[in-house]
Amino acid sequence: MTVIVRDLRPEARADVEAFARVRHLALPYMVSTPDSVAHAIAQAHPDAHYRPLVAELDGEIIGTAQVGIAHDSPEPGQGYLNVYVHPQRTRHGAGSLLVRVAEEHLAAQGATKLFTWVLDEPANRSFAERHGYRPSRSAHFLRLDLANSTLPPLQTPPPGVELRTAADYADDPRPMFALDAEATADEPSDIAVEFTDYEAWIAETWKHPLLDLELTSVVLVDGRPAAFSAAYTDGATRYASAMTGTARAFRGRGLAKLAKNDSLHRARAAGYTEAFTGNDAGNDPMLAINKSFGYEICATEVRHARQLG
């Protein structure tokens, strides 16, 4: 039995479905579908040099890797590779082979530092360290039993504050782009991100197949979008908070919690039964908000980095 690594074939539906299935089995705390996998490939920015890889054992896809350059970071030369192997198909060498091919690709594109997320489990961390990666910051996955939880009651917004949805900006999403760019720039991360390309944001983010505009809540202050909670769904039972943020001028007023509570209520009314989110382990304000909704930590990832050369 020999493992081979090859490029995912986006035109082959079986490849895309297998990629999504392996990722779900290895990381069930994230909402992913074959359509979202295909979208990531089709809409990847050319400067990202995005290359999804699969590891195949006797014709079965048992491993995946998302590989690319952090093109939207102001610091050049940063690459990423996130490798996942089917939990029942480990110890065949798929992970190591995926890492090797990914690193060769990123080095050829000029990457000088590589980042990867690793589940905070002894075997996973040991694997990363054997390949030369060293741990840095951590982040939590959180889960909420949305069908059976007791959410905080919906509140009437104070004077000058209004609740809307992202669907109200379908004809002109630029205000949402500005808000998302400002909030994302302040997210705790090893890789700084700057959204400057509106058309790329439209293609990659606004038109993402998981984004539900009707469930994405937006808080307006005096008519200006000030906070939001973006909703991803699988179209069946799973809902995820893709991003919750507030413009700098309006922080400390509880607007992010207002937006997220509204989105969660909308999601439950729409029939979603399970909610997920993720937080940097040092993001105490957002962790406190999620705890108030009843979210519980279900897994932790640790970011690892390796300097090339």
Rank of each mutant, 00 (worst) to 15 (best):
F250P: 00
A108P: 00
M30T: 05
P28H: 02
I41Q: 13
E274F: 00
V37G: 14
E194Y: 01
D7C: 08
A227S: 12
V5P: 09
R251E: 05
P152F: 01
S217F: 09
D234Q: 12
E56T: 08
H265R: 09
A40D: 14
S73Y: 04
Y198G: 06
M176E: 13
R253G: 00
T64L: 07
L53I: 08
Y29V: 07
T116L: 06
T90Q: 10
D284L: 13
Y50C: 00
A94V: 14
R23I: 02
L27A: 09
P175A: 12
T33R: 12
R89Q: 13
A270G: 10
S138M: 11
H105T: 04
T64E: 08
T116W: 03
L255E: 02
S229L: 01
T277G: 04
P285E: 06
R306D: 02
P173M: 15
T150A: 07
D197Q: 07
F228W: 11
Y272V: 07
I69K: 00
R174C: 10
V193S: 04
H39E: 11
A128G: 15
L220V: 05
H208S: 12
R21Q: 14
H265L: 13
R253Y: 05
A18F: 14
L81E: 07
Y272P: 04
R9G: 14
E301Y: 15
H92Y: 15
R137N: 10
S263Y: 03
A26D: 06
K257I: 00
S263P: 02
A236N: 13
E162Q: 12
F276R: 03
A183R: 01
G271Q: 11
H105C: 07
A14D: 14
A178E: 15
V101W: 13
F19Y: 15
G235S: 13
L81W: 10
H45D: 11
L25V: 01
L264Y: 10
V218W: 07
A240L: 14
F141P: 03
N261R: 12
A270K: 15
D7T: 11
P52H: 14
A231W: 08
P87Q: 05
K257T: 04
L106H: 02
N261A: 08
S241P: 00
A227Q: 02
T64R: 06
A94Q: 15
D7Q: 11
G95T: 09
R51T: 10
A231R: 06
A111S: 04
Y169C: 10
R21T: 14
